[in-house]
Design a protein around this nucleic acid. Structure first.
Lengths: 191, 191
DNA sequence: CCTTTTTGTCAACGATTGTTGACTAATCTG
DNA sequence: CAGATTAGTCAACAATCGTTGACAAAAAGG
């Protein structure tokens, strides 16, 4: 499926294999514990290729950690559904990691001990989360509201996907949408 | 408090210096990026002493990461203040890191990429957070309620102290107690 | 003062890390 | 098919890691 109609220069395959392996391992173990050799082994090629194609471990991480939250426009009419909408969106983004996205676990794993990853998360917040939340309430409280939303959503991701706290990991999606959605709704709109 | 009246065998000083240096560096950089040599340098002694006194890097981490949340009894009469009480308690615990505690930043930094640290956080949740929350509502939903509380409180700690997300780091304590307290209150009691 | 135990330093080990350059195999171009 | 470019492998490098054992300095005990 998704067959490349155009001619594959044959190297694109391995490039993608490296990216996939890196994404998987970075998300699983974080930046520090993931070695270039592990990535190469998982991609089935030589460690030297990782450096030749991406310039180094740092550059590869920067490429793999690119993340587009694809936040929906929250300025719509149904302003009382903002919380549920947001939570549902994030759940779909995180759960369906197989899709194009999947950069979030990578960042979350690494941001705790890697300042570059943390800075990238701050960028994502400033460029994507903040503007989206800003439209859902008074501008003067936009930063605070967006910050509170981030604290809840990142906390959910942390406890559910990284720490795998049993009661949180066991929650079904609809419960999360209902409970956490109510919180996000209150944070986003400021009551 | 708890002053050692007995004579100091002179080595206790260095033991404490190692523990302090380790606590500081583990909290700053996480487990993986903190080296035994860095700890020794900060404590002003030889790296070999770290191993001799604590057996190894892992054992030192385990000792330093010990954490007692000292959660207050939430079974009291004022059940509508549980949220604010909890948030205030955690803020005091995290903010006053200089005190005896301060194990939380250590764990939070490392748990993202260190399975042992993650397991320790799960233990703390199970042994301390869960029982405290269980008394604040119906037993059959205790796990879910405690999990949601943890997702919000750990998310707050993550965004405020680890990621240092500007709007969250800038929040004053009273605002946090009010806003996040309301959320925790709802999670803890199940409405 | 001599002996014993504790406290500390020093150098080095084996393993692992990211990275590099030389070399071979494959593929493309004419 | 001949030549050139690309894809890939291999061994090794320098650096750093946690850890160890031999040894010196200092304190303690008689």
């Amino acid at each position: 499926m998704t067959e490349p109609r155009r001619s594959t220069p044959k190297s694109i395959r391995t490039r993608q294999a490296i990216e996939e392996a890196a994404k998987y391992l970075f998300a699983l173990n974080g930046f520090e514990r993931t070695t270039v050799r592990d990535i190469a082994a998982r991609a089935g090629i030589d460690p030297a290729m990782v450096i030749r194609y991406f310039g180094g471990k740092d550059a590869l991480f920067a490429r793999v950690a690119a993340l587009d939250l694809r936040l929906p426009d929250l300025g719509g009419a149904e302003s009382d559904m903002i919380g549920e909408t947001l939570v549902r969106h994030f759940l779909a983004l995180w759960e369906g990691e197989a899709a194009g996205g999947g950069g979030m676990p990578v960042l979350l794993r690494s941001a705790a001990s890697n300042e570059e990853a943390a800075a990238r998360l701050r960028d994502i917040f400033r460029e994507q989360v903040f503007p989206a939340i800003a439209r859902a309430g008074p501008p003067e409280t936009a930063a605070q509201r967006a910050g509170l939303v981030a604290s809840q959503l990142l906390g959910l991701a942390l406890t559910r996907y990284v720490l795998k706290l049993p009661p949180v990991a066991a929650l079904d999606a609809e419960t999360i949408v209902r409970e956490v959605g109510a919180t996000v709704q209150r944070y986003a709109t400021g009551h």
